[in-house]
Design a binder for these strands. Structure first.
Length: 430
RNA sequence: GGAGAGGUGGCAGAGUGGUCGAAUGUACCUGACUCGAAAUCAGGCGUGGGCUUACGCCCACCGUGGGUUCGAAUCCCACCCUCUCCGCCA
């Protein structure tokens, strides 16, 4: 949510910023709404003020043992006027709130201009794609050769966009998550968190998935309204909802490994082959809660934490600054990390690191006590560190051998019982 | 799942219809005393919103949402959450 005062006082400037995203701020509607809100609110407040004063007078008169019938007659019409004013004000306030909740975040000045992903700006490349003296296969073909990558069984039990992993591949998937958690907790200063996978509407409104993107979520049908999390960012960032943290509690760095559930509405026909786009996937998520003046330094650091995962796994990648037209709803600035996939002969997203500034914090009233002792909105950042399923894809494709086997990256071997190479076995082919 | 208790300010904890946004304690800030500190004394000290050049004034908020009433922290209804006991269970 944007600062309502800024929205009112500098609506032209806000509109210009949002226009960079391709979002049109309806200034006329905003001005009209504000004018109505202001008039009705002032009238309602004045009526309430008078009601309060009169009621207080009745109380005092009663205390003195006087007859209060005349006073109560005076206040009779006032009650009806107030009820009418409140009936008018409620819907207007709801309209103001709804208007505010559907506005995306303001972009940071450094965000490159552009309409879509083709205008994203490459910031750096790390590592060099390996060369193969054979035609590299994609992860689906590699997995089929190894056994243990089973879309057919997943289709039978759940439908499309699900996968079953078995044997060494399942273990490699687990090893990747364990490795990432250990790296972030022991070397990057994160505190590990285990969190609920089902969350309330309020929680999803706090991080910005609701009310606008309900069609992307899986909603449960129980008597309580709950949604499956699309990312651990949602439960973890909401740790700070309705809280005033002491200044020395910041920066707070949290990491969580969770499954993520996405309906992928609107992605029909996109990445239908393989593990790239699933309804359920695992991710290790980094969340930073920081003081405002530290948030852009924290964004750089967090992107480097995600990058460190790929570097230790020996996976080549590049970092993109997302352009104004491609950046997410709640983000002021986003870096995507794209890992090299030789089977697709291109870089594919494996991490997204965003600084949401106070956008989420304002929605969830996440604050800290500043140097002056006053509550102030903190800044929230989140980033994948990294997507586990896609990391599995990257390992399979980058470490494939001519004979169909796959070398295990050195960093993962301790998590694989020392195993150095995945080879096809008869049992797993069956 | 059954029975009961309870959700009030940073914390503790009063308050069952009327000058209650809320006693008191504690924490914190300022001042006095002191060489300094402690103790003591005095004052200050919630959040959000609106109006105003300003001083300041007004509104809302006692888990959440409704209701009753001239007036609700207080009464009624629903829901959420916490705790205790029983049952069940990983």
């Amino acid at each position: 949510m944007l600062d309502p005062k800024l929205l009112r006082s500098e609506s032209e400037r806000v509109a210009a910023n949002l226009a960079r995203r391709g979002f049109t701020l309806d200034l006329a509607a905003l001005a009209d709404l504000e004018a109505r809100r202001k008039a009705v609110q002032m009238r309602t407040d004045a009526l309430r003020s008078e009601r309060n004063a009169r009621s207080k007078a009745i109380g005092m008169a009663k205390g003195r043992g006087e007859d209060v019938a005349p006073l109560m007659a005076e206040v009779d019409q006032l009650g009806r006027d107030l009820a009418a004013a409140e009936a008018e004000f409620g819907p207007i306030q709801a309209e103001v709130d709804a208007f505010a909740l559907q506005l995306p975040n303001l972009l940071h000045d450094s965000v490159p201009e552009g309409a879509d992903e083709t205008a994203n700006v490459e910031v750096r490349r790390v590592g060099t794609p390996g060369t193969f003296d054979f035609e590299p296969k994609d992860h689906v073909a590699i997995g089929e050769g190894l056994g243990g990558l089973d879309f057919e069984t997943a289709g039978k039990i759940s439908g499309s966009r699900f996968v079953v992993l078995k044997g060494p591949l399942a273990r490699l998937h687990r090893a990747l998550a364990q490795f990432m958690l250990d790296l972030h907790t022991t070397e990057h200063g994160y505190t590990e968190a285990y969190v609920p996978y089902m969350v309330s509407r309020e929680t999803l409104t706090g991080t910005g998935q609701l009310p606008k993107f309900e069609q992307d979520l899986f909603k449960l049908s129980g008597e309580r309204e709950l949604f499956l999390i699309p990312t651990a960012e949602v439960p973890v960032t909401n740790f700070a909802r309705d809280a005033i943290l002491e200044g020395d509690a910041l920066p707070m760095r949290l990491v969580a490994h969770t499954p993520c559930f996405r309906s992928e509405a609107g992605a029909a026909g996109k990445d239908t082959r393989g593990l790239i786009r699933q309804h359920q996937f695992d991710k290790v998520e980094l969340v930073n809660l920081v003081k405002p003046e530290e948030s852009y330094a924290a964004l750089e650091t967090m992107a480097s934490h995600a990058g460190a995962v790929l570097e230790k796994l020996g996976l080549p990648y590049r970092v993109l600054a997302l352009c104004s037209g491609d950046i997410g709803f709640g983000s002021a600035k986003t870096y995507d990390l794209e890992v090299w996939l030789p089977g697709q002969d291109k870089y594919r997203e494996i991490s997204s690191c965003s600084n949401c500034e106070s956008f989420q914090a304002r929605r969830m009233q996440a604050r800290f006590r500043n140097a002056a002792g006053k509550p102030e909105l903190l800044h929230t950042l989140n980033g994948s560190g990294v997507a586990v399923g896609r990391a599995l894809v990257a390992v399979l494709e980058n470490y494939q051998q001519a004979d169909g086997s796959v070398m295990v990256p050195a960093a993962l071997r301790p998590y694989m019982g020392g195993l150095e190479r995945l080879v096809a076995t008869v049992a797993q082919r069956a």
